[in-house]
Nucleic acid binder design. Structure first.
Length: 489
RNA sequence: GGGCCCGUAGCUCAGCGGUAGAGCAACGGACUUUUAAUCCGAUGGUCGCGGGUUCGAUCCCCGCCGGGCCCCCCA
């Protein structure tokens, strides 16, 4: 006697639904018709008066059969509406078809609005037609999906189970739309620059490597947009911006992705003060436009973006932890200070910039909660920014901070080609000393600067990072449709 | 890359050395205004994968795979 074939529940359900598809076809009904003429969004239908005829379509998300009468919930992108099917209205033969329907299927219905005795707005269905037969069952109606792995790997399913997944994506679209609208309104033009680069530049990060077959050459995926934009400024454009995907070969974490959308803009003949005022107006516009307020809640914190924002000075903050950066002009001098502060990742061989950066990120940044500018960074951590004319160890730079995190970075762009070359050479030395994220010397960029770049202010912000904080999302993956996952098998 | 935790039915979860359970969904039936509808019935499992210990492993041990949180890196 042969072993009974083990069939999983899922396979049984799927087989049962495929059989229903066949039954529908046998009855001359197409389970996958092309359209449903004259449909209106459910949200619009809900605005209609009682007794109005409506024609709506959507996914069946709830299904309650009571013999000769059946209630169901239909959901489209705009909303959800109850429908009521009655044997005596649609006819016995049509009513039998509901046995071939399942939660998850798409249905189109026409009928008149009424209110049930419990007060729920409902379509009294006169006609209905199946629009799409689903083969796989939906998650459980009460608890929905909670498995974080499925939520990330099968976002489409998570969106069906919980529409707030889709709401975040819609809100992000609005946020980005307002970014463009603001910058367009300020006379910036949107440009597109290459994703594949010979030398990745403009940021401290490890790149991804890819290969071009026809040229038989390796290329890097860009880590920022900066250098290409400055070449456009050299070329004569005065206000440019781009919203583009960048790629950084780094670890994953609650506020880190390996690919994300960076907004950068570059503004010729503007200085740091002008940039601050523009950034305040820009953030006010996109935040208030998208969320209807400038007061944002993140975790336990109330964050108010109403300008003008307070300003914190980089060197002052260090003095606040009893470190005068001017007293430690070299890495060797600074290292014992970092170690005394208990920063375990401070080791010999690190450059001065890295040491300063790690002290800042460990001891200072976590306390910068309210929206504010951070200004006056050391030149060591800002190889592309113009020096402060009053103190050449510092640069004309601003960062936007909120909730202990960076949500914006800009500076007066370094346009002295000889100084830029020296900064790159210093970065080069750091690379050779083992700093994988030190920047690379880009001859083409240096040559462009030698043709002359007007005084320029530039600014960049990670859209996902910023948006994560604005939406009070616990992790950055929550604001991305399909975050990277390890492949299965 | 390191530390801790998790993986049982399509989904949400119990069980934790002795023949694998519940709710929802699905299947058959009753029910023409329900709201997680209700009621009756019958199903459904390589207990992530591979080794080991044991008379016996979903359970204990080791390894692997996938995931989460915290570090590291970074916006």
């Amino acid at each position: 006697m042969p072993e009974e074939q083990s069939t999983s529940r899922l396979e049984e359900i799927r087989a049962g639904r495929i059989a229903k598809v066949a039954k529908l076809r046998a009855l001359g009904i197409d389970p996958y018709p092309t359209t449903f003429e004259g449909r209106e969004p459910i949200a619009d239908a809900r605005e209609q008066p009682i007794d109005a005829s409506v024609r709506v379509a959507g996914r069946i998300v709830l299904w309650r059969r009571h013999g000769g009468s059946t209630f169901a919930q239909l959901r489209d992108e705009s909303g959800q509406l109850q429908i009521h099917l009655r044997k005596d209205v649609v006819g016995e033969e049509r009513y039998e078809l509901i046995k071939l329907l399942d939660v998850g299927d798409f249905l189109g219905v026409a009928g008149k609005l009424f209110t049930t005795k419990t007060g729920e707005l409902t379509v009294g269905v006169e006609e209905f037609s199946i629009l799409t037969k689903a083969l796989l069952p939906l998650p459980e109606k009460w608890h929905g999906l909670t498995d974080p792995e499925i939520i990330v790997r099968k976002r489409h399913l998570a969106m069906i189970a919980d529409a707030t997944n889709a709401d975040v994506l819609k809100q992000r679209a609005e946020f980005v739309r307002r970014m463009r609208a603001f910058l367009d309104g300020e006379g910036f033009i949107e440009v597109a620059t290459p994703v594949l680069e010979s030398i990745p530049g403009g940021a401290d990060a490890e790149p991804f490597i890819t290969h071009h077959n026809a040229l038989d050459t390796d290329f890097y995926l860009r880590i920022s947009l900066e250098l290409a934009h400055k070449r456009l400024i050299v070329g004569g454009l005065e206000r440019v911006y781009e919203i583009g995907r960048v790629f950084r070969n780094e670890g994953l974490g609650r506020e880190h992705l390996q690919d994300y959308d960076l907004l950068e803009f570059y503004w010729a003949y503007a200085d740091l003060e002008a940039l601050k005022r523009l950034v305040e107006r820009f953030y006010s516009s996109i935040i208030e436009g998208t969320f209807g307020t400038l007061k944002i809640t993140y975790g336990d914190d109330e964050l108010d973006f109403t300008p003008p924002w307070p300003e914190a000075d980089y060197f002052e903050l260090f003095r606040g932890i009893d470190v005068d950066l001017h007293q430690y002009p070299t890495a060797e001098a600074l290292l014992p200070v970092a170690q005394k502060l208990g920063i375990k990742e401070a080791v010999s061989g690190m450059g001065r910039g890295r040491l300063i950066d790690v002290i800042y990120k460990r001891k200072i940044r976590p306390a910068l909660i309210r929206p504010q500018f951070l200004v006056g960074h050391p030149v060591d951590i800002s190889p592309l920014a113009k020096r402060d004319s009053a103190d050449s160890s510092r640069v004309q730079r601003l960062q936007v901070l909120m909730a202990g995190s960076e949500v914006g970075n800009g500076f007066a762009e370094l346009n002295d080609p000889l100084d830029q070359r020296e900064r790159f050479e210093e970065q080069q030395r750091l690379r050779e000393a083992g700093d994988k994220e030190a920047q690379r010397l880009d001859e083409e960029f240096l040559e462009a600067l030698e043709y002359g770049m007007p005084p320029t202010a530039g600014f960049g912000v990670s859209i996902e990072r910023f948006f994560m904080y604005l939406t009070n999302s616990p992790t950055i993956r929550d604001v991305v449709a399909f975050p990277l996952t390890r492949p299965l098998e």
